[in-house]
């Protein structure tokens, strides 16, 4: 298990990086944390002709508060996201999700943006980006562009990124004050890829759920925002009956795959069970935050 030959570029800047990608004839790869890419290269499942190492590009390792968003640069490691005070204060659901991301040593190297680009259907970052209405910042020799996460993630290990493009940052929308949140994940062992996970955001106004956002992973070939299910809960009271009904709808709408670890039926059950817990938790947290009269 040794990687095939490649040409190596230590990019000094974003411009340098995308120029090198453009010169790679369509099979260049960006190396950030390498925690997903390097195993695939060692297995020779990925054999880039050019490997563009962006780890020395300055200023990409920042988490910054912009208007209503947190911006995570391309070299923000999982450990930084997990320990960042802005993340903990403004997006507690992401802070909670980070506890499930791999292991200490992998978190030291792996990056948020790298995980989004890798687009593993059972990894947390693509799902959280969808949940938080993420915006992907993309650079190429042709300039820069942005793209909503829902358009960016197109399939298992597949994104809308062109061969000469790299992701420079991801913006995550900060939920409104008092938004209830929950994150539930199940994996066979701590830190493994999830069999299923769900993240929920909801506000509570006048005793009703508003602006409901539900994202899931492990249940399709990409992480999903469940718009139909969100709509079904929108404006309803957060009662057990409402949650049960919404979960039933959720389960009916899923068509998960069977694989080594889980049959489709089990995955559907698991998705429902995790969603049920998450909906109730998010509702409870929302109530606490708003302190509305009962």
């Amino acid at each position: 298990m040794k990687p095939a030959r490649f040409d190596y570029v230590r990019a000094e800047s974003i411009a340098h990086a995308v120029e090198a990608l453009a010169g790679a004839g369509g099979d260049g790869k960006v190396l950030a944390g390498g925690q997903s890419l390097m195993p695939m290269m060692n297995f020779r499942l990925v054999k880039p002709s050019v490997l563009v190492d962006i780890n020395r590009i300055p200023d990409l390792d920042r988490i910054t508060l912009e208007a209503g968003t947190l911006r995570l640069g391309a070299l923000v490691r999982h450990r930084m996201t997990a320990e960042d005070v802005l993340v903990a204060r403004h997006i507690p659901v992401l802070h909670a999700a980070m506890k499930h991301v791999a292991h200490l040593t992998v978190r030291n190297r792996g990056t948020f943006c790298g995980s989004v680009c890798h687009a593993d259907p059972a990894a947390e970052m693509p799902m959280m980006t969808l949940l938080l209405d993420g915006t992907i910042h993309i650079a190429s020799p042709r300039g820069t562009r942005t793209m909503p996460a829902r358009d960016f993630l197109i399939g298992s290990l597949a994104t809308a990124l062109e061969p000469d493009e790299m992701v420079t940052a991801v913006d995550l929308a900060i939920p409104a004050d008092g938004t209830g949140w929950a994150f539930e994940e199940f994996s066979r062992r701590h830190g493994d890829y999830a069999l299923a996970a769900v993240a929920v955001l909801m506000e509570r106004r006048d005793g009703r759920a508003r602006n409901v956002r539900i994202a899931m992973m492990g249940i399709a070939d990409t992480a999903l925002r469940l718009s139909d299910v969100e709509a079904a809960l929108e404006g309803r009271e957060g009662t057990a009956e409402a949650f049960d009904e919404v979960v039933a709808r959720l389960k009916a709408s899923l068509a998960p795959n069977s694989d080594l670890n889980a049959s489709a039926d089990y995955r559907r059950h698991l998705a429902g069970a995790l969603a049920r817990r998450a909906l109730a938790d998010a509702w409870d947290r929302a109530r606490e935050a708003h302190m509305e009269p009962a």
């Binding site: 297995f43 062992r189 701590h190």
Partner: peptide, 27 residues
Amino acid sequence: LEEVVHDDGGQLLTASLADYLVPIAST
């Protein structure tokens, strides 16, 4: 946790340590 799985065609499905699961400290 541990199970070596061959499919009906005799192909191994558990060829990495992400698929062949052994106990870790938290198990």
